[in-house]
Simulated scan of single mutants.
Amino acid sequence: MKEWQTSGKLPEEMIGILRMLNREPVHWKKINIDNVMDFAGHHRLFPQLHRSTEHLEPPEQWKQSIQKHVMQHTLITLQLAGETARAADFFRTNNQRLLVLKGPALAQFLYGDVSARMSSDLDMLVPLEELENAALLLQQLGYKERPYFSKKLPDWKWRHHHLTFYHQDSGVHVELHWRMHPGPGREAGFEKLWKERRYVDFGQSNIPVMGTEHLFAFLAVHGARHGWSRLRWLCDMNELLKQDIHWAKLEEILGDQKLIAGTALALCQQLFHRQLPEETASWMQSEKVMKITENTMFYLSRKVELHAEVVPEYVSKYHRKYLFSLLSVRRKLLFVSSFLYPYPEDVAILKMPKSLYFLYIPIRPLLWIWRKTKKTAVTQ
């Protein structure tokens, strides 16, 4: 028996889903189909379950339920694939570089089928210095920006990592990135990613994506940032492990984030019985990796929605600690020191001309205390 089957940390629905994904015998009558479909929807797993259960001969009720969900989401995915090609072609025509991060392009890259992975939006990466031009091109395609942060201070360039756009007619959302992840912290620059890019065949369009090693690092950090709260992300990692990966190069790319990659590998090994190359054995041997892997079960055992309008306090508190545990000592120091840099909220409290914005840095702790005091007074 595998660890996840005996740990008691995963509900029966998740154990059933993992058995299906691993094409192991399933006790169909012992698990509730509605509950399993609910978990599968949360974890965005209908295409993967559909492919796996074809080999398990499920009861007709199960087969029909999975097929129904797959058909619904295939239509959405095909629409996103069309928008991906339209945007990539338009950007190319206007000499605007971009890399497509996830969505149907990732499905094609990993699974060889744009509909083999559920997607809800498009993620595109461009250089920061070309961000304004890329945003204008999206607007020409009919997208409107939906601002969600202030640009009063230059901190937005490293605190945040994307702009959001919405197409009123198609309903498609686009995240236009200039960083792969929110800061603070260093990551591979666009020029390096562009130099080592690969292309995904979309029929009449070729979609530029990151090279295999950079994609591995990106997906590992992205999944970890979200606590692997969607099992789909670990399915992607497991599928990516079938690619020819240059492990020494990946180790260099990861730098002080090798801990995160080690955790992703350990989870793939435990959940999907993935056989891993000898080069990665040392990545998973530390007590810290084992601890973080165990802590990830908090998310996999629940339907955690980190992007919900209201996130339960116990989830927020747990997630803050979880994220901090992923950081190296250097990144922890950088993260803590970033709180000393002023926020737009500080500008709203104490207005100063731009020529004096540097003064926000020394008085930032006082403004933070003032805001906390005012908040406490209001809630009492």
Rank of each mutant, 00 (worst) to 15 (best):
E130K: 14
H167V: 03
Q139T: 09
H161E: 05
L137N: 05
P154F: 02
M118S: 10
V172K: 01
A135V: 05
E132Q: 12
S119N: 10
T164L: 13
L153A: 01
K151Q: 13
R117P: 00
E145M: 10
K152E: 15
Y166M: 11
K157H: 02
E129G: 02
P127F: 05
L138F: 11
L137G: 04
Y166K: 07
E130S: 13
E132D: 14
W156Y: 15
K151W: 01
H173Y: 14
P154E: 01
H161M: 02
A135M: 13
M118G: 00
F165W: 08
S170W: 03
K151T: 13
Q140W: 09
S119L: 09
T164R: 12
L141E: 10
T164S: 15
Y148N: 11
M118N: 06
E129K: 10
E132H: 11
M118Q: 14
E129R: 11
A116T: 03
P154D: 03
E132S: 12
N133Q: 15
L128N: 00
L131K: 04
R146T: 14
Q140V: 07
E145N: 07
K144H: 14
Q140N: 12
L163H: 12
A135N: 01
N133T: 15
S150F: 06
D155L: 09
A135D: 08
S120C: 11
H161D: 04
N133E: 15
A134P: 01
Y143E: 09
H162S: 04
L137I: 07
P154K: 00
L141H: 03
Q140Y: 10
D121L: 07
E132T: 11
D123T: 03
G171E: 09
S150L: 10
G171F: 04
L125Y: 02
Q140K: 14
Q140G: 11
R146Q: 14
D169R: 13
R159E: 11
R117A: 05
R159G: 01
K152D: 12
Q139I: 05
F165S: 04
F165P: 04
K157S: 08
F149C: 09
L125E: 08
H160T: 03
Q140D: 15
Y166D: 09
Q139P: 06
L153C: 06
L131H: 08
R159D: 02
P154C: 00
A134R: 04
M124L: 15
H173S: 12
G142R: 02
A116W: 01
N133K: 15
A116I: 08
W158V: 08
P127Q: 09
P127C: 04
F149D: 10
P127K: 06
E129F: 11
H167L: 04
P154L: 00
H173D: 15
K152N: 10
P127V: 07
A116H: 04
G142V: 06
L122E: 08
P147V: 10
L163D: 07
L163I: 02
L122D: 10
V126D: 02
D169V: 13
L131N: 02
E145T: 06
R117L: 06
L138M: 11
H167Y: 08
T164A: 14
E145Y: 03
W158R: 00
P147M: 07
L122S: 01
P147E: 13
K152G: 12
Y148C: 07
Q168E: 15
A135E: 12
S120R: 12
